[in-house]
């Protein structure tokens, strides 16, 4: 089984201050930490599990700056056989569509039975790269996948719908799946695997290797801004004792206890 997994390196912002930079079109990144996008860690693990079960090859692909190579190398250490970085610095005005076009250009000549992506990138939040890529590659897809059972070229797939309802599909490979978090338990790379991965070459492709040139993005950024305050919680202040007394008061007042 030949597998491709698309991996994005993203800023970790859940617990960080996010500030707009002076250009007004990007965020201040120097104090942020970057790591593999959350659902991509699950996509990678799913790919490794498949490879362990069926053999074959596993290629990790990322569109990103040179730092994305650190993330790809972790993928190599965890179980990918080879890795490709598409030089993000060669391209401007990337959006989900252009990203998918570039990913396609990078993998179209590879053999594959399955392509995995994450279901959403936690920085840009589009949830569109996987499905767009499937369309460009001309293969069927399923999003928000929480279970895959493969036999020969058949896949039994569970998708997660709203309210925790599961949709069960029968699919035929080759296909693309966007993976939802929680589908498996991502591993840590072993030290030996890390040492082997450090020596592996990462293939880097830039604008000159990408056909067709001049892919147009669908969207361009006009401005970034802090979400309007809207409704704002009344922030309770004072000592912990005072705050707690206030909360207890609120609970009592509403007759909840």
């Amino acid at each position: 089984m030949d597998i491709i997994v698309c991996i994005k390196r993203v800023a970790q912002t859940a617990e960080a201050d996010v500030k707009i930079d002076s250009s007004g079109k990007d965020i201040v990144k120097d104090r942020l930490t970057f790591d593999m996008n959350e659902s991509d860690t699950y996509a990678l693990e799913e790919a490794i599990l498949l490879k362990e079960k069926f053999g074959g090859t596993l290629t990790a692909v990322s569109l990103g700056t040179v730092q994305a190579e650190d993330t790809l190398r972790i993928a190599l250490a965890k179980g990918a056989d080879s890795a490709i970085r598409i030089k993000a610095e060669d391209f401007e005005g990337l959006d989900g569509y252009k990203t998918a076009q570039l990913l396609k250009a990078a993998i179209k000549d590879l053999k594959f039975d399955v392509v995995f992506t994450g279901c959403i990138a936690t920085d840009d939040y589009y949830s569109q790269v996987g499905v767009t890529l499937a369309e460009l590659l001309g293969v069927p897809h399923a999003t928000l996948v929480t279970k895959i059972d493969i036999q020969d070229t058949k896949a039994q797939v569970h998708r997660e719908l709203e309210g925790g309802l599961i949709e069960h599909l029968d699919m035929t490979l080759p296909a693309l799946f966007t993976i939802q978090t929680g589908i498996n338990e991502p591993r840590y790379a072993s030290l030996i695997a890390i040492r082997r991965a450090a020596k592996k070459e990462i293939k880097v492709i830039g604008a000159s290797e990408i056909e067709p040139t001049g892919i147009q993005a669908n969207a361009s950024l006009e401005e970034l801004f802090t979400p309007p305050a809207g409704k704002r919680a009344e922030i309770l202040s004072g000592s912990m004792d005072e705050i707690s007394a206030k909360v207890a008061g609120i609970i009592k007042e509403k007759g909840l206890i």
């Binding site: 912002t13 669908n218 979400p227």
Partner: peptide, 15 residues
């Protein structure tokens, strides 16, 4: 659209 864990909004123009 909302980005970065809902901490920023982005105004985006489509082609």
């Amino acid at each position: 659209r909302q980005i970065y864990d809902g901490k920023l909004n982005a105004k985006v123009l489509l082609r």
